[in-house]
Design a protein around this nucleic acid. Structure first.
Length: 764
DNA sequence: GTTCTAGAAC
DNA sequence: GTTCTAGAAC
């Protein structure tokens, strides 16, 4: 069966012409690798070099390093190379695969003939280069086949040809013999056995839900047993015939018996590996259409992968790209190689993310989508491919989770069982991710601001991987939906039985529902978004809030999807380690995402149900004092670094973000994020409640005085120091950058301003 | 909260 | 013609 996962029409075909190729032969001793090379080289018009480890050392057996060097020299000369050694497992191949790049394609030719045939050939022959002949050959061949790991495209091959009999070998021989110097061969896997049985096996295996037919189940068990036996033994590092012999002991009988099991393994089909766990396949985020710098992106991918491989248990992370010459894939591969990352837990894969299983043999129960902010189908690239492959049911399932996505966030969507992505590929969840955009033609253009861009990209991968972790956790802890869950979250039509948490809340704040004041609908949507949170607690807190202000429609509707992030961080600070500066039992400190001054951070209360100053009562006095103390501590730290700064600590009367937070903000207001009248007035009018005043209010009256009047935010623009008025924001900003007038007397009283000790005298 | 953009203001 | 804002959309 011919399979070309890239498609034979290659837009870059012209550029690829004339590339040298490295053909890595994979096969046991006696399979006919050397003969294959000889035949091709005898008649081919393409310049070939055969690199054979058994003879590379002046006719004697050499090292892998010598082979690599020799291959590299040949490639530099523009010659194509055969790597003639057993190359039976991934580890043996990996360094040779690295010879590949934009100018060199890596192929594999797998000569997977019956073990008995290889053995009988090895036993009979004399004068073999690897000195593998006679009686010991049977044991050696069997031993080597034990650790056979058929190559997969994800190792970095652009083309793999499987030969299961002499006819296949002859066909491959013809293909390579006829390959002229300027010719290229289509990419993909060719001649792979039993793809159909494999599909079913794979789906059953990772969903662990369907009942497996007894024959396949027993096959699977025999593979597991077989592999566990092998893993108990120490594998030799190389695989030339000679070294294998020297590493062998006298247990030849046992090995022949195991060799029979090995043949059974082959019958299950290639690509079956007992250690497949839950797997997330993800494209590189933002590096395609969003034009994010590849070098920076690859750093972030490797950083985040390193962080999360520890958290995914037996799960795997796979970076996928459609193209072989993918720059991002080679950058990541190179950087991963320098880190201590388990290659079984993370690897790269070349192929179509919507056909990883059916065309690439890679089982992934979760795939990530590089989504657009509207979470709509269409556009191009991965987003279009995934929505198109999944069918309309994914769009419906996505809408149930969220209507839009902010950069840096992700949303987990269970794939409906009616979708072919679920049935054919075995994908149970899609995680939509939105990364930072550096493309001026697309929304949320960051205009080359890589400080923000990198942060958002980190957030995006964190959200994505957290989503994957939560799926793993949900599937292992809650294989079925409990009646408790049903109570909180009624099943909807089109809902599937494998629901999963939403990573980052992005609810569907449907305007019609808002205007109709249909709280029940709104709440159910919000709850759905918070499936991974303490569901009842979240709902209760919101309900309390609603009851308290039940006559206040605007407040009932107050928290949009975008207003949830502080709450999320306060409830799960450990999940946002990169964002928070400090975590304690009752407080989280973090930088404001859009600082309105040189220094602008938030001291966030962790108490659930405390959404704003309006919720604060006498019970919270201690907390307010702790928050103030923490704010002062940070202000003083900044003052130590820069004594010219002046800070103010306070709360917004009506905050936009849910979860009580104290602003600690320097009074320079020197920031590109300060853009409009509301920004300015929210920090310089009575709308801003100084922390010292709030504490005094609570102490004396039991509640905070609020100045929620919108007119405060619409006030004329006045300098916070000299109180002069200015016509617009740019003029105001220009003024405040120079104004050195003393602050109004009211601010100088009662420690509302926090200054460096040396400055206090001059201001009072 | 931000982004986007029509149209006001200059 | 360009700058800036207010309001809508998310």
């Amino acid at each position: 069966m011919d399979v070309d996962i890239k498609g034979t029409s290659n837009a870059e075909g012209e550029e690829e012409k004339g590339k040298p190729i490295v053909v890595i032969l994979v096969g046991a001793p006696g399979s006919g690798k050397s003969t294959f090379c000889d035949h091709v080289m005898r008649s081919s018009t393409r310049p070939w070099v055969r690199v054979c480890q058994d003879t590379i050392n002046n006719g004697k057996s050499g090292t892998k390093a010598q082979c690599l060097k020799s291959a590299a020299i040949a490639l530099k000369d523009g010659k194509s190379v055969f790597i003639d050694r057993c190359n039976l497992d991934r580890e043996q191949r990996v360094d040779f695969v690295k010879l590949g790049g934009p100018q060199v394609d890596i192929h594999a030719v797998v000569i997977d003939l019956p073990a008995q045939l290889c053995i009988s050939r090895s036993v009979k022959r004399t004068g073999h280069e690897g000195n593998l002949q006679g009686g010991r050959a049977a044991a050696v061949v069997n031993k080597m086949l034990q650790k056979k790991e058929l190559p997969k495209l994800n190792e970095g091959f652009s083309r793999i040809t499987f030969c299961h009999n002499e006819t296949d070998v002859q066909a491959a021989l013809n293909t390579y013999t006829l390959l002229a110097p300027l010719d290229i061969l289509p990419n993909g896997c060719f001649g792979q056995k039993n793809p159909d049985s494999k599909v079913q096996l794979g789906i059953m295996k990772f969903l662990k839900k369907m009942e497996a037919p007894s024959n396949t189940e027993s096959n699977l068990n025999s593979i597991r047993d077989n592999e566990s036996q092998i893993s108990e033994e120490k594998n030799p590092s190389s695989c030339t015939g000679k070294e294998m012999i020297s590493s062998l002991s006298c247990a030849a009988d046992k090995e022949v018996k195991e060799g029979n099991d090995q043949l059974a393994l082959g019958s299950v089909g290639p690509g079956v590996s007992a250690d497949d766990g839950p797997t997330l396949a993800f494209p590189s985020i933002s590096t395609a259409d969003f034009q994010f710098n590849h070098e920076k992106a690859s750093d972030i991918i490797v950083e985040k992968v390193e962080e999360f491989v520890k958290k995914v248990g037996n799960g795997r992370l796979v970076l996928v790209d459609l193209n072989h010459g993918s720059k991002i894939l080679s950058l990541v591969r190179a950087k991963v190689a320098q880190r201590n990352i388990d290659s079984k837990k993370f690897f790269t894969f070349v192929g179509d993310i919507t056909q990883l299983y059916s065309k690439g043999g890679l089982r992934c129960n979760v795939i990530a989508n590089a989504a657009n902010w509207r979470l709509k189908a269409g556009g191009g690239g991965v987003n279009a491919a995934i929505f198109s492959a999944a069918g309309p049911s994914l769009e419906i399932a996505t809408k149930e989770q969220a209507s839009s996505l902010h950069p840096g966030n992700a949303v987990v969507v269970p794939v409906p069982s009616s979708s072919s992505l679920y049935g054919r590929e075995g994908v149970s969840h899609v995680i939509h991710v939105l990364g930072p955009n550096m493309n001026p033609q697309r929304p949320n253009f960051l205009n080359d601001d890589y400080n923000r861009g990198c942060k958002i990209l980190r957030d995006a991968y964190t959200s994505l991987f957290e989503g994957f972790v939560s799926i793993i956790r949900t599937q292992s802890n809650f294989p079925t939906r409990s009646s408790e869950n049903l109570k909180h979250e009624p099943l909807k039509s089109g809902d599937t039985s494998h629901d999963a948490p939403t990573v980052f809340f992005s609810s569907n704040t449907d305007q019609k529902i808002k205007r109709n004041n249909n709280y029940e609908s709104e709440r159910s949507k919000k709850c759905k978004g918070f499936q991974d949170e303490a569901r009842a607690a979240t709902t209760d807190s919101r309900a309390r809030h609603i009851n308290k202000h039940e006559n206040d429609v605007s407040r009932t509707m107050a928290w949009g999807s975008w207003a949830q992030s502080l709450h999320h961080i306060a409830m799960h600070p450990a999940r946002h380690k990169n964002d928070v500066l400090e975590i304690s039992d009752d407080i989280v400190v973090l930088n404001d995402l859009y600082p309105k001054a040189q220094k602008h951070l938030l001291v966030v209360a962790r108490c659930d149900g405390l959404d704003s100053l309006a919720d604060v009562g006498k019970d919270h006095l201690q907390l307010l004092m702790s928050m103030h103390a923490k704010g002062l501590e940070w202000a003083e730290k900044f003052l130590h670094e820069d004594p010219s700064l002046i800070f103010r600590l306070g709360y917004h009367s009506a905050p936009s973000m849910r979860q009580l937070h104290l602003h600690v903000i320097s009074q320079d207001f020197n920031s590109n994020h300060l853009k409009n009248k509301k920004h300015w007035n929210s920090f310089t009018t009575a709308f801003f409640r100084d922390s010292v005043d709030v504490i005094e209010d609570i102490r004396t009256a039991g509640k905070a005085t609020l100045k929620e009047d919108d007119s405060l935010l619409a006030m004329e623009l006045r300098c916070h120091r000299c109180r002069s008025a200015h016509p617009n924001i740019p003029r105001l900003k220009s003024h405040i950058s120079n104004c050195r007038a003393p602050f109004p007397v009211t601010l100088l009283e009662s420690s509302r301003l926090v200054l460096a000790p040396t400055k206090i005298a001059s201001h009072s």
